[in-house]
Amino acid sequence: MELLALEDVTKRYAPDQPPAVDALTLTVEQGEILALLGPSGCGKTTTLRLIAGFEAPDSGRVVIRGETMAGGGRWVPPEGRGVAIVFQDYALFPHLTVAENVGFGLQHLGRSGRPERVRQILELVGLESFARRYPHELSGGQQQRVALARALAPAPAIILLDEPFSNLDADLRAQMREEVERILRDTGTTGIFVTHDQEEAFTLADRVGVLNQGRLEQLDTPERIYHHPATPFVAEFVGAADFLPGLVTPYGIVTELGVFANTEAWKTGEKVKVMLRPDDVAFVPSSFGDGMIIRRDFRGSETLYCIRLPSGQRVHSSQASSSLYPNGTRVRAEAHLIHVVTFPV
């Protein structure tokens, strides 16, 4: 069932500036986890605020459970939407204990029902023993869990997470990511989270929406986003990519690194660019090779080489971290593409 729909939603903060969110249309299914991915200023946080009801769209509609929340002359304030939000800074109420924070949205339960629900939710996030602490007495990861617990407590239709892991250290981030996913899946909660970290979006989300300058460039599964990016922007944003010029012939697309299948039915004679990921490019050192290593970046788990081709075009190749060829090594490079992705020049 379709839980949330944004229909052609546009939001502009100032009349003389481009819209923060530009004719955005997307739907989210019940129980799904959606990531909104994009660089800062792409409109992803504004999208969350439009859904939560902290901003009103200039045009378009926000529909939750088939009911119009904003647009078409209707306006439901944030408190009437059943949409919970976990803020980037957690926004825990500093004057309330953990239990009081979690119970904040449970007024409808009354004094008798609240403690039971609070206990239940705190157990879910593993913080039963911290109920009487104040937020400033907790670590970053614990604060994050309280924020999540507080949002989950009223059993909202949708939970929104704004850059939820950006304030955590790297190793804690991976752990919290798993935990948040487990909690959302266990409770069957629909989640929409915003991030600029593609790895985070890929590991957590069922579908990823890539936003650029307020527009939705692509909404797809993580695999499709990575292997079949719809635009060069998506291709570059979700991982390193080089674009190799090619010419369409009856035998395929001819490039400097070989001929690739014309999977997208370009017309013969058209010029295109072929997307290469660093793991698509291999090379062997050879004194007869016409490529040359011009830069080597040791990355720990891999070594990234930059190779200059005779035309001057540069491509990147990812190799094992034990690989060690100095700059200036002559190489013969080749590309092995499982998915051929091409864009018009």
């Binding site: 939560a52 304030p77 408190e79 919970a84 939000i85 800074d89 109420f93 007024q107 949002a151």
Partner: peptide, 27 residues
């Protein structure tokens, strides 16, 4: 006070005045 505090209260079901009373005023 970061505005997200009052917004958090709003999304947890409090109206503007109730959010002010429960969160902003004590702080």
């Amino acid at each position: 006070l970061h505005p997200s505090l009052e917004e958090a209260a709003r999304s947890l079901g409090r109206g503007p005045l109730a959010a002010f009373w429960a969160v902003t005023l004590p702080l």
